[in-house]
Each structure stands twice: as structure tokens, then as C-alpha cells.
Design a protein around this nucleic acid. Structure first.
Lengths: 342, 342
DNA sequence: TTTTAAAATACAATCGATTGTATTTTAAAT
DNA sequence: ATTTAAAATACAATCGATTGTATTTTAAAA
């Protein structure tokens, strides 16, 4: 009936035992005798007692809650990361407060204020594409709680970042295209304010360099990598000369480009070979299937949550960053010369 | 420096104004003069005051947080629902605590206890496939907080449900196959303990009936609709006689069936026409593209959150259920006779 | 100038659990 | 039976904000 409205004081009164003892008993403190513990526990279940966590939180200044800031929940990659975070947090008895920045700095700022107000014990954040300054993270950090960056690494104070080996992955992806015989490779890149996209571009350039191909600025198309922008980049590609390969830093753009190409008589991979990034479920199903980089998204979530909870317990950040390895998944969209020459 | 550690008492001391007045000023109460309000606000920002919501929550017995229980975050449909919920909650100043049941009753039970302990102001839940009794919801409901079911409707006490018109949608999907000329239609159904899947099956049967086709139990394959089960159901289909159509209640199963069929020389839709359910992004990209039911997932999230927050404010449930309309998206996988006869 | 109602502010209890300190109880040692 | 250390329990302050009531201040009315 009145479940949830029973307090330790009710138990205290019912048994004539002080509330402090009740509290200790419920927390299994060694300061309470087994006999009284048993009595108290029995009464607690009898009355349907449920600890009021709000009160507990206030007193202990802990919430057992971590905040997760994510650009967009519904993006496949992120929803998998969140699943990993939730899984790990659940096992450790933490709650997960999820907030979407929708790639907006303004929202991200408000979110950080809310998370501070709510005194979450730590924050996992993948900064928005608009985020170039980190003022809004300072109050939370100054309060003394840890922040861990995931996916989009960030050198803010002594915070830990967890990400994949973006440079190498991009290098390998580009190299793969080169080894397939591509000579004029276009890069679909993301906003260059984000370290992540810088790294991917660097990997692309490094591969070109290694194989003596010249990097040409017009071959580097920067956008937010949405479906729409994938299409418009595809259009641009057709206006460039002799493009025979594309390395896109996400699958969304790569896939919408493929569809545009197919609709306009450009053969994939015979005319243009394409490599994406993310290994979205669609990439395995589209025809031709998309060669892409498989990121350990779920694992990243698990690892990020573990790291954060570790820092919450130990009250300090190592500042070290964790790099997970991704791998190239070769499918049909990149079988360029192999298909045509052999 | 000490941001977040400043309390109303610090402001109170600094200005020689009682903390109650400070509190009221910060809450913009009419009981405080404009002049003092200004002074207090100025001091608050100067000191970097951040309201401690834990204390506030305890006193007011409100958390401004809603709990969301979801079978699996990373499923496209659900992540879109969550995006809608988060969006609406954000606008209303609510936080969203997300928990995955992973289709396990046991986890769902624990989650409900946690949500009660955390005194979330309301709960949005899509029950797990294992959930057939609702005992674990009672304590939360008895505590006096509203529960709203989304996607998987549920007749528990006077709770509101929000779902799509599953019966009609399934009816239409099946009817569509019939009108395409299919005579022997298999049903890929979900666990029949769940009202949702019952309704979809009923829709399927009703359509058969309307067109004088006989419902045959062996044509009704029940599973949890995973990828794996999609494949094994596809195998079973090939052992049945003369199957020329499949209505699957999710895309996952439909798609993996298509892939199995393609790999085994069964032509889609010429040999077997297929209709799915969900309009997952893949369904538009697979070849042949999958005819499916498009559900307003994001909108469902928005609506569910709105309903819940309304009930939180008004302290009562209408018990009425909301039904959103989905629509049939016709693509290539169901162009059965049209393709072969015309 | 005095009265009086309204406006502004102060006082103090409260939400429920936690925790350091003080007191009582128990049981072992003398 | 008495001392004493340890075990068990009680007392009381505290976390920080909120809120009903009491008191003071202000300004308008008499």
C-alpha cells in the first residue's frame, strides 16, 4: 500500500530501535548485532521499505549515476556505444542519464550544467561537431568529477579519451584502395575542428604519400557527412577528373553516394571503388556490399564506462588515453582492379 | 574554483540575508523584492552557485527525471523512440534515465526497483518479451507515480498505452500480399504472450479470412525474430508446400530470410513475395528493397513522453490508450504477380 | 503623527538517511 | 563481586534546499 513511503524512522518506531541503528543495519554495518539486524530486516520487508535514494544521495554526496552526452542516440554507432555503457553501468549498480547534444554546442552547454546540478558522479561525452572550446566542461571538472571522452578524443585538462586508431584505420582504408589500383582517390571528410576527423584525413594523406600519390585539395570534400551531403559530394565527384576511388569517413555518406552513382550509371567498383567507415548494418546489405572499417562500438561503451567508474572510485584521472583497434572489412565495393584486370 | 560547492548558505552569509530568502529569490518567488533578488542573483553568479538538485529533490520529493525501460537500445526502432523521448523531455526540463531490459524479466524487475528507489517522476516502459505478469510494476504504481506503456501495449491497472495500429497494419500488409496474387502466405510471428504480436497475428488471420484463404497453423512460424531465427524460418519455409508470400512482423527476420533465399536460388518476389515490419533503414537498401510497415517511432517517443509528463503534472491517468497510425511502404519485395504476369 | 494593511524578510522545522560521538550493555577477566 | 574492555545501541548534527509561520519594515490611509 504505502510502499515507498516507509522510512527508517517508521522501522525505528515500530521496533523501538534508534534510526541510526536501523540505517546501519540496512547497510549491513558491523556495528549492529546479528540479532537486531535480522529483526530490522524483517520489519523492513514487512513494511515494504524502500530506501529513499534522494536522501542518501544528499548525505553521501554521491548519486550512483553517470551522465552520457551523445551527439545523436539513433545513430547506429552511438546506440551501440550506449548499449555497452548501460550494460557495464548496470552491472556496477550505476544509473545512466542520457542526453543528446544533436551536434549543437548550445545544447551541450545546457546539458553539462544539468549534469552538474544533478551531481552525476561522472560524465562520458562525445563532443558535438560544433564544440571547439571547452569552457562549459570546466565547472563540472572543477567540481571534482571525472570526464571521459569517447569516440571523439579531446585534450581537455587531464581527461582520459577513448577512441579507435583513426589514423591507422584511415591509412589502411586508403592503402587498400591504392593496392586495388586506384590512383585518384577522393576523401569524404568530416568537420576539421574535430580531432577525430583530422586524424582520419591525416591517415588518408599519409597513405597517398607513402605510395607517391599527390594530395590535391579539391579531392578532399569536407561536410557533415549526412545522407544529403553524401549525394551532393557524389555529384561533385563526377565533376572531378578521373576519380577512381573514394574513402569516406562514414558509411552514411558512402552509401548515399553509391546509390547516387548507381542511379547515374557509374559502376561500383568498376568505375569507382569505395571504402566507408563504421560498418553500419546497411553496409553489409547494400549492393555492392560496402568495404568499411569495423569499429568496436559496444566494446568502446563498455570500456569507457569501466574507465569512468574506475576514476570515480579512485578520485583521479590517469590522463592516459585508450585506443581500441578497428579493422578493415573488405567487401565488394572496393574490388577495383581485381575485378577488371584479373 | 569551488563552483558547485557553493550553497545558498554561502550566499546568505555573504549578503547577511536569510537563506530562506535566498532560496525564494533564486526561485523567483514574489515574496522577495526586486532589489534583493538582483543582489542575490548577482552574488550567486559571482560565487558560481549551482543549485544542489539532490537537496531540492529530497525536499520537494520530485526528481524531474523520468525512467525509460527499453528492451534493447541499439535496435533501430527503439533508439528512434528514445530520441523522441529525450527530445521532448529535454524541452520540458526533464532528465531521462535509460535502462535496458534486454528482454529479460529479471532485469526488468530489478530496473523497476531501482527506478522506484530513485524516485523518478514517471516511467515509460516497453515490456520485455518474457514479461507476462506485472507484479513488479505494482510497487512503483502504488507509490503513486504514473507508468505509460509504449510500443507494446499492456492492460495493467489504469495505465495508458501508446502503440501503433498493429492489427490494421498487419491486415493491410497481408492484404497487400493477397492482392499481389499470393495464395499461400506464411506468417513470421513474435512471442504470443505479447499483446502486440497477438494483434499482428490477428491482423494476418483476418486478412486471410476476408479473402477466403484458409489459415493453417504450420504456416505460422513463431520466434523471437532475430537474424538467426529469420534464417531458420526461411529454411522451414522451403520445406512447406507452395509458399508464395511471407508476412514477417519485423524487418530483421524478413531481411535475413531474403538473404537466405537469394543464396539458395529462390527469387524474390517472383517466387516468394515478402513484407516486413518496421521500416528499418536497411529495408530501403536491400535488393530487392523490402515492402514494410513504417512506424512513427520518433513521434511515438515524443507522444509517450508528452503523455507521461502530463500525467505527472495532473497526478492521474486517463487510462485511455493512444494509437498512432503506421503505413504500408510498398517496395520491390512484394511485386509478385505484377512482376510476373504483366 | 498614528494606525494599519501589505510587503519583505527572518526564524525554524522538515525531507530521509548517514555518521561521529556518547552512552549503555554485555561478557570476560580479575 | 568488581573492574574493564569490547560490543551494541542511542544521541545529535549534518547534507542543502524548501516552506509554513512569525516578525519586521515599508508605505499608504486616517
Amino acid at each position: 500500500m504505502n510502499s515507498g513511503k516507509v522510512t527508517i524512522h517508521d522501522i525505528s518506531k515500530a521496533l523501538g530501535i534508534d534510526s541510526s541503528t536501523v540505517s546501519r543495519a540496512l547497510n549491513d554495518s558491523p556495528r549492529v548485532s546479528k540479532k537486531t539486524k535480522a529483526k530490522i530486516l524483517a520489519k523492513a520487508t514487512e513494511l515494504g521499505y524502500q530506501r529513499n535514494i534522494l536522501a542518501s544521495n544528499l548525505r553521501t554526496n554521491k548519486t550512483n549515476t553517470i551522465g552520457v552526452v551523445v551527439p545523436r542516440i539513433s545513430r547506429n554507432f552511438f546506440s551501440n556505444v550506449i548499449a555497452g555503457i548501460e550494460e557495464t553501468a548496470y552491472e556496477a549498480g550505476y544509473n545512466v542519464l542520457i542526453c543528446q547534444s544533436l551536434e549543437s554546442l548550445e545544447r551541450e552547454q545546457k546539458i553539462m550544467a544539468t549534469l552538474l546540478s544533478n551531481r552525476v558522479d561522472g560524465v562520458l561525452i562525445s563532443i558535438s561537431m560544433q564544440t571547439t572550446s571547452f569552457e562549459h566542461l570546466k565547472p563540472y571538472k572543477d567540481y571534482g568529477s571525472p570526464i571521459v571522452f569517447y569516440d571523439r578524443p579531446c585534450s581537455f585538462e587531464d581527461c582520459t579519451s577513448i577512441s579507435i586508431n583513426d589514423f591507422e584505420a584511415s591509412f589502411k582504408a586508403t592503402e587498400h584502395l591504392i593496392l586495388q589500383g586506384c590512383k585518384n582517390i577522393v576523401h569524404f571528410g568530416g568537420p576539421q575542428d574535430i580531432e577525430l576527423y583530422q586524424n582520419r584525413k591525416k591517415g588518408y594523406k599519409a597513405a597517398l604519400e607513402k605510395y607517391g600519390l599527390k594530395y590535391e585539395a579539391p579531392f578532399c570534400l569536407i561536410s557533415k557527412l549526412t545522407e544529403k551531403e553524401g549525394t551532393s559530394m557524389a555529384k561533385k565527384v563526377l565533376k572531378l577528373k578521373d576519380v577512381d576511388g573514394i574513402f569516406s569517413v562514414n558509411d552514411t555518406a558512402a552509401i548515399s553516394a553509391i546509390q547516387y552513382f548507381k542511379a547515374h550509371g557509374v559502376r561500383i567498383p568498376e568505375d569507382i571503388a569505395i571504402v566507408g567507415f563504421n560498418n553500419d548494418p546497411i553496409s553489409a546489405v547494400i549492393e555492392p556490399s560496402l568495404t568499411t572499417i569495423d569499429q568496436p562500438d559496444f566494446e568502446m561503451g563498455k570500456k569507457a564506462a569501466t574507465l569512468l567508474m574506475h576514476q570515480i572510485k579512485n578520485k583521479k584521472s590517469t590522463g592516459k588515453s585508450v585506443v581500441l583497434t578497428s579493422k578493415l572489412v573488405v567487401r565488394d565495393s572496393s574490388k577495383y582492379k581485381i575485378n577488371t584486370e584479373v
